[in-house]
């Protein structure tokens, strides 16, 4: 097994080991940069997070609920979700009807060709 050419994809090769090597190198570079930082950093100073110039909220108050993440994405896709989500009605008869519907569709296609 040649480590440079492990996974044959039909048109090329891809080697995760090389990628791992690259990752390690990148990590080393990062460590080097980190080690060049200020050594005279003192504990207790500048620890407070900088939140748009406001004061840090109470402990735990900085928690962002999951519903707020990707709010903009969801808002922009509202018309799409408005159609998609109501289809998931949760009623078992609808589930069965979808199954039968696909079956009927395939029956038409299958018998027509």
């Amino acid at each position: 097994m040649d480590p440079t050419q492990t996974l044959a994809t039909g048109s090329g090769y891809w080697s995760p080991l090389l990628w791992l090597l690259a990752l390690v190198v990148g990590l080393a570079v990062a460590l080097v940069i980190r080690s060049r930082g200020r050594k005279d950093f003192r504990e207790g100073e500048g620890r407070a997070p900088f939140i748009s110039g406001n004061k840090e909220p109470e402990q735990g108050g900085g928690h962002i609920p999951a519903s707020n993440i990707y709010w903009g994405f969801l808002e922009s896709m509202k018309s799409y979700y408005g159609r998609l989500v109501p289809v998931h009605t949760g009623v078992p008869t609808d589930y069965v009807a979808w199954l039968l519907g696909i079956m009927a569709l395939m029956l038409i296609i299958g018998l027509a060709t």
Partner: peptide
């Protein structure tokens, strides 16, 4: 109406068979 159509298609197909 939609469900009835589905059932009718199934009915027709199976009857034909």
């Amino acid at each position: 109406a939609l469900y009835s159509a589905i059932l009718l298609v199934l009915f027709g197909g199976l009857m034909y068979l």
